[in-house]
Computed example of a mutant assay.
Amino acid sequence: MSDSSEPKRPARQRDAERTRAAILTAARTLFSTRGFAQTGVREVAELAGVNSALVGRYFGSKQGLFRATLEVIDITPALHGDRRRFGRDMVGAFFDTPEAPGPLAMMLLSAADPEAHAASVESLQKKVITPLARWLGPPDGEGRAIRLSILWNGFLTSWKLLPLQGLSGARLTATRRWLEAETQAIVDEGAV
């Protein structure tokens, strides 16, 4: 009897992982297009193709689901490359990212809700500013990490979320080179 139950456990585990991933994908899509307040658990479940009770089972609440969607934010992989190419590599990641719903859109559209706003600020600090500040080191690693975040968020907002007319073609190429250089200059402020 134990032999027949063993194959079922891995199948259930895979289904659970698949269900959780489907819920997160649906939630990211809705949070990044509608915001936190305008997204309901039932809508997330419907888009994911699951029963809405599963959202509560996996994430506890809509707030727990929102926090889980923010887990995609992680700058640490970018910190393992060549420091001298960080500007080019980091900006390249912005341009190479598919048109998938992004965490910046989720955070901006959810800023009106105090709990979602707090979760966004906490995630940005924990997943971007703190590791980037450690990596940058003295002088003023945290200040430089904050300036980089301002620079990148401003660019991404102007390019993707509130697109400026004319930021395409040759202008976009020139802006990319500028963003690479400015990013690298902030990184290099600590170089001796």
Rank of each mutant, 00 (worst) to 15 (best):
Met1Ile: 13
Ser2Pro: 12
Ser4Glu: 15
Ala11Arg: 11
Arg12Leu: 11
Arg14Asp: 06
Glu17Leu: 12
Arg18Asp: 08
Arg18Leu: 08
Arg18His: 10
Thr19Val: 10
Thr19Met: 07
Thr19His: 06
Thr19Leu: 09
Ala22Glu: 03
Leu24Val: 05
Leu24Asn: 03
Thr29Phe: 08
Phe31Arg: 00
Phe31Ile: 00
Phe31Cys: 02
Arg34Asp: 02
Phe36Ile: 01
Val41Thr: 06
Val41Lys: 03
Arg42Asp: 06
Glu46Arg: 09
Leu47Gln: 06
Ala48Arg: 04
Gly49Trp: 02
Val50Asn: 04
Ala53Met: 08
Leu54Arg: 04
Val55Pro: 03
Ser61Thr: 02
Ser61Lys: 02
Ser61Glu: 05
Gln63Gly: 06
Gly64Gln: 08
Leu65Lys: 04
Leu65Pro: 00
Arg67His: 01
Ile75Arg: 03
Ile75Thr: 04
Thr76Phe: 08
Pro77Ile: 09
Pro77Lys: 09
Leu79Lys: 05
His80Cys: 11
His80Val: 13
Gly81Thr: 02
Asp82Tyr: 09
Asp82Pro: 03
Arg83Asn: 00
Arg84Phe: 14
Phe86Lys: 04
Gly87Ser: 09
Gly87Thr: 08
Asp89Cys: 03
Phe94Gly: 05
Asp96Tyr: 00
Asp96Thr: 00
Asp96Leu: 07
Thr97Glu: 01
Pro98Phe: 06
Glu99Asp: 00
Pro101Ala: 02
Pro103Leu: 00
Ala105Ser: 06
Ala105Thr: 00
Met106Cys: 00
Leu109Met: 03
Ala111Tyr: 06
Ala112Ile: 01
Ala112Trp: 01
Pro114Ser: 04
Glu115Met: 05
Glu115Leu: 09
Ala119Met: 05
Ser120Arg: 04
Glu122Tyr: 12
Leu124Glu: 13
Lys126Cys: 06
Lys126Gly: 08
Lys127His: 08
Ile129Pro: 08
Thr130His: 12
Thr130Cys: 11
Thr130Gln: 15
Thr130Asn: 14
Pro131His: 07
Leu132Tyr: 04
Arg134Ser: 11
Arg134Leu: 12
Arg134Met: 12
Arg134Asn: 08
Gly137Glu: 15
Pro139Thr: 10
Pro139Tyr: 10
Pro139Trp: 14
Arg144Gln: 14
Ala145Ile: 08
Ala145Asn: 09
Ile146Asp: 15
Ile146Leu: 15
Ile146Lys: 15
Ile146His: 14
Leu148Pro: 07
Ile150Tyr: 15
Trp152Ile: 15
Asn153Trp: 11
Gly154Tyr: 13
Gly154Glu: 10
Thr157Gly: 10
Thr157Leu: 15
Thr157Asp: 13
Trp159Leu: 13
Lys160Arg: 14
Lys160His: 14
Pro163Glu: 08
Gln165Lys: 12
Leu167Trp: 03
Ala170Leu: 09
Ala170Thr: 11
Leu172Thr: 07
Leu172Cys: 08
Thr175Ala: 15
Arg176Ala: 01
Arg177Cys: 11
Arg177Val: 12
Trp178Pro: 06
Trp178Tyr: 14
Leu179Asn: 09
Glu182Ser: 14
Thr183Gly: 07
Ala185Gly: 12
Ile186His: 05
Val187Asp: 08
Asp188Val: 13
Asp188Phe: 07
Glu189Phe: 12
Ala191Gln: 14
